[in-house]
Amino acid sequence: MKILVGYKRVVDYNVRIQVKPDGSGVVTDGVKLSANPFDDIALEEALRLHESGVADEVVIAGIGPANLGAHLRNGLGMGADRAIHVVSEEAVQPLTAARVFLKLIEKEQPGLVILGKQAIDDDSGQTGQMLAALWDRPQATFASKLEIADGKAKVTREVDAGLEVIEVDLPAVVTTDLRLNEPRFIKLTGIMKAKSKPLETMELASLGVESGDHLKNTHYAPPPKRSKGVMVKDAAELVAALKQKGLL
């Protein structure tokens, strides 16, 4: 079975995001970029399925500008067998991303697609579900455990009420939650090997995908600041302050 993994590059989760003064976006110049943490988890899961013999090939795919290659090489360094770079200078919205992935699915015929449950830049959390709908296949979102046997996946999902277990027929789309696994670090030998692994590039325009970028982000603002509070010296003072606020 082949596994297709979405591997997006985003602003690193440790970066303190600054909104541009003119409200046109956030500052990305000179800011550290990394793999979306949920996508590293997706790749890790695919690699484990490869190592345990469930999968025989792991293909990562990313949509992004010309310089995305280095990021995809990291994914190859982590252990993916092959990478696909869909070149687009503009960031795409989830519906477009889902349509692009559907094209890749038609070409690659994977038995399983693993994406992150959300990308920590736009925090949309939509692509996996949209892809599953367009592909007319099952989705198992927010996965914290994935077991594959007999052409089916049993997936434990982190939902508000607790843990939900569902069973889906393959092929299917799974989106990862944080507790699915802990991604490995990239080893030097991995980086060396990655250099010779195949990285295919294709222009987004060449895929014949209708754009689903229907939303216009017209203005960015920093969130309202909470005013700095006061320090209390002990429990008794804290209780008094809470009583004064009418909270106790």
């Binding site: 989830p94 925090d123 939509q126 579900q129 949209m130 892809l131 989705q139 999902r157 508000d160 939303l215």
Partner: peptide, 23 residues
């Protein structure tokens, strides 16, 4: 925008061929 809505809404939007606004 609970795990219920986050799971279902994008799938419904894609079936309608439209974008979805999150949160």
């Amino acid at each position: 925008s609970t795990t219920f809505g986050k799971d279902v809404a994008p799938r419904a939007a894609a079936l309608l061929g439209v974008a979805q606004v999150s949160e």
